[in-house]
């Protein structure tokens, strides 16, 4: 018997519900709104499933729909050319590659991640947490792959800088922090 579009959708898209829910929870903050976002994402995906090319990356396609739906509902700045206000000191520090401190905790890593500007945070979330390839993340974010790589690079470095600063505050890896301070001056 011929497979229906719904069968194909069930095979291609539905296995990604769980991964999208996790990301949505991160984007929305609450489980309830995350579930609403994922449901809306899958409805939109179903309605435009005829435009999905079989064999292309369904997960990246779903992320793209979800991020678009999320940004539209929030009317945030993610669809506009964004400008991140890095202070001059951090901008300079980004030229420096601080070593990752020892004795880091999940809490400090998470705090460093949460402090990232949204575009960097989204890139790190998709690649380092969700495991999307750079290409998939670029598709999902509707951005050139070079832009995504740049956001990742800066996001990861900013996290390391935050970790170095936190470690120094506890008297650990003060030499890395001293190097960082020198770069800032």
């Amino acid at each position: 018997m011929a497979r229906t579009a719904r069968d194909q959708f069930n095979d291609e898209a539905m296995p990604h519900v769980r991964a999208l829910l996790r990301t949505a929870a991160r984007l929305c903050g609450t489980r309830e709104s995350a579930e609403d976002l994922v449901q809306e994402t899958f409805l939109q995906a179903w309605r435009s499933f005829h435009r999905f090319e079989p064999g292309s990356n369904c997960r990246a396609w779903l992320y793209k729909i979800m991020l678009f739906t999320h940004s539209r509902s929030r009317r945030d700045q993610s669809r506009r050319p964004f400008h991140v206000d890095l202070d001059a000191a951090n901008e300079k520090a980004l030229l420096f590659e601080p070593p990752t401190p020892d004795s880091i905790t999940a809490t400090s890593v998470r705090a460093a991640f949460d402090a990232l500007p949204e575009p960097f945070r989204l890139a790190v979330l998709l690649v380092d947490v969700e495991g999307l390839t750079y290409r998939e993340a670029a598709d999902a974010l509707d951005a050139p792959i070079g832009t995504v790589m740049s956001r990742l690079n800066r996001g990861r470095r900013l996290m390391r800088i935050a970790l170095v600063e936190e470690a120094a505050a506890y008297g650990i890896d003060v030499s890395a922090h001293a190097d960082l301070e020198r770069k800032r001056q």
Binding site: V17, R18, L21, R110, F113, V124
Partner: peptide, 23 residues
């Protein structure tokens, strides 16, 4: 380790059984 801690900080992927049924 940093990456593993970051992934771990989100916890396991939530149970989506009920949501799958809702969708």
């Amino acid at each position: 380790q940093t990456r593993a801690l970051l992934i771990g900080s989100f916890g396991d992927a939530p149970d989506a059984t009920a949501l799958e049924a809702r969708i």
